[in-house]
Computed example of a mutant assay.
Amino acid sequence: MYKIMIIEDDLRLCSEIEKGLSKWGFNLTTVKNFEDIFNEFVHNRPHLVIIDINLPCFDGFYWCQKIRVISKVPIIFLSSRNTNMDIMMAIKMGGDDFVTKPFSMDILVTKIHAMLRRVYSYGENLGDVIEHNGVVLNINDSTLIYNENKIELTKNELRILLLLMKNIGKIISRDRIMRILWDDDTFINDNTLTVNVNRLRKSLEDIGIYNFIETKKGQGYVIL
């Protein structure tokens, strides 16, 4: 079942869209916190986004551009602002289509179906991300984003973070991490893992992420 995220400040219109799309069996989620749309997107991982231009705090152009940093998910702008400049800006920021208010629900549904069919029928990889406390790990391009800052991760850094962020609150033993990093019979000096973790911590600190990975003496590492 496809999941669609609706980012619309007009509660009445939002309700109408939900009612119209629910008839087609879509899994719908509506943004309530307009100050943290990016993290809501990461948490919900929708297959398609419907977004207005006029939103509280930041406009739809801003959030579209933020989403595009980590995902190629289809984005449809839905707005009463219909000048050529608005439409051009929507596409420039990463939008895939533009529907002008007032609109026909039938037209919107047709566009959604066409876009989902075109994008997902060919198995396009739209990105796989994990978020925790504002730290966003993009698995597909081996990058990490925090407060507008972005760093590229080495293969081992990605593997360490992926394991820890998939197991938030759980202590992962050093032996388990080493088995994942070096999945062969080669002998690995225990200090090699320490070096990798220390380098990762330094990379995180360079973009303002401190004490993200905790050491549990005699047990392993954990992200809380």
Results as ranks from 00 to 15, higher is better:
I112F: 11
D141S: 12
L161D: 01
N54Y: 03
F26L: 08
F41G: 10
N138H: 09
E152N: 13
R174E: 15
L200Q: 02
I130W: 08
K19T: 13
W182I: 09
N149E: 13
P102E: 04
I70M: 03
F103C: 07
D183V: 09
E157D: 11
L21Q: 05
V49P: 01
G20L: 00
M88E: 11
L116E: 05
L162G: 04
C64E: 02
N198W: 04
M88K: 04
Y221P: 04
L181V: 09
K166T: 02
S80L: 08
V119L: 05
N33A: 07
C57M: 06
S203Y: 12
L163E: 08
K66V: 05
E124W: 07
V109I: 15
I130G: 02
N196R: 11
R45C: 03
F187I: 13
K111V: 13
I7G: 00
L78I: 15
M1D: 01
V119G: 03
R117C: 05
I139H: 04
N138G: 12
N189I: 05
A114D: 07
G218T: 09
I91A: 09
I172G: 02
T154G: 08
L162E: 01
E8Y: 14
V222M: 01
D36L: 10
L193W: 02
G127N: 13
L28P: 04
E205S: 15
R201Y: 06
S142G: 02
N125L: 14
R45I: 11
D9F: 10
L200K: 10
D106W: 00
K155D: 01
V49T: 13
K111G: 09
M5W: 06
N196C: 08
Y120F: 15
M178I: 15
G218N: 05
Y221V: 10
T83K: 11
L55N: 03
G169H: 01
F34G: 04
K111T: 12
I76G: 03
I223K: 00
K217S: 01
T192P: 01
P46W: 02
V135Y: 00
R68N: 09
F187V: 11
Y62C: 03
T30G: 02
S142R: 14
I87L: 06
E152G: 09
E18R: 14
R179A: 00
K66Q: 14
S22W: 07
F58Q: 06
H43I: 14
T29Q: 11
N39V: 12
G94Y: 07
S142W: 08
E16N: 10
